[in-house]
Amino acid sequence: MNVPLTTLTLTIATPSEVVVDTLAIRSLRAEDESGAFGIRVGHADMVTLLSASVVRWTTPDGNERFCAVDGGVLIVSNGTTVSLACREAEPGDSLAGLEAQVHRARANRLDAIRRARVEQTRIHAQAVRQMLRYLSPEKTRGEFE
């Protein structure tokens, strides 16, 4: 006798980490270009491109969990497995807490980009000074040292 499956398996991965690893869930709600949609056990196989949004799911014990994603690819296979691959994902237990986490992560990312640009400009200026030193006539080389 076949016992009907009551849970899905969810995996969310980014290039640098597996954020959610084969978690049992009852249902999932996500959003693509056509709008929001839900997935339950037995859902037809599908592949869709997600919009930047919050994916939410319900665990077997009835708790809701959330994950902010910057878009990505969602795959449903065999009516029981949901896989999501995206560049960035920020999981959370509540929407309010998730919003704060996303703001912090975005601020950290922007700060890292700013620091990288400053370092790139510094290295570029150093390279230009070095080239000028080597390309200038002998009598003016002392000005750059």
Rank of each mutant, 00 (worst) to 15 (best):
W57P: 00
V54N: 02
D61R: 06
G72T: 12
H43W: 08
A68K: 04
A52L: 02
V55R: 05
D45Q: 10
G72L: 05
A52Y: 01
E64S: 12
A36W: 09
G71M: 06
D70P: 06
S53R: 12
T58F: 00
G38R: 02
H43K: 10
T48F: 08
H43T: 13
A68E: 09
T58S: 01
A36H: 09
E64A: 11
G72R: 10
S51Q: 15
R56C: 08
T59P: 00
L49V: 11
V69A: 01
F66R: 05
D45K: 07
G42T: 07
V41D: 03
D61A: 12
F37G: 10
D45R: 13
V69E: 00
A44H: 15
R65L: 12
V73Q: 15
P60N: 04
R56Y: 07
W57R: 03
T48G: 03
T59S: 10
F37E: 04
W57Y: 15
D70C: 11
R65T: 05
A68N: 07
R65A: 11
E64H: 06
V47N: 06
T48D: 09
T58C: 05
G35S: 10
G38D: 12
G35L: 06
A68T: 05
L50K: 09
R65F: 04
A44V: 14
P60C: 00
S51F: 03
R56P: 02
A36E: 15
V73K: 15
C67E: 02
N63S: 11
S34F: 13
A52E: 13
I39W: 10
V41A: 09
C67R: 00
V55A: 04
L74K: 04
A52G: 11
P60Q: 00
P60S: 04
R65C: 11
V47F: 12
A52K: 12
L74E: 07
C67T: 04
L49R: 14
I39H: 05
C67S: 05
S53M: 10
F37W: 06
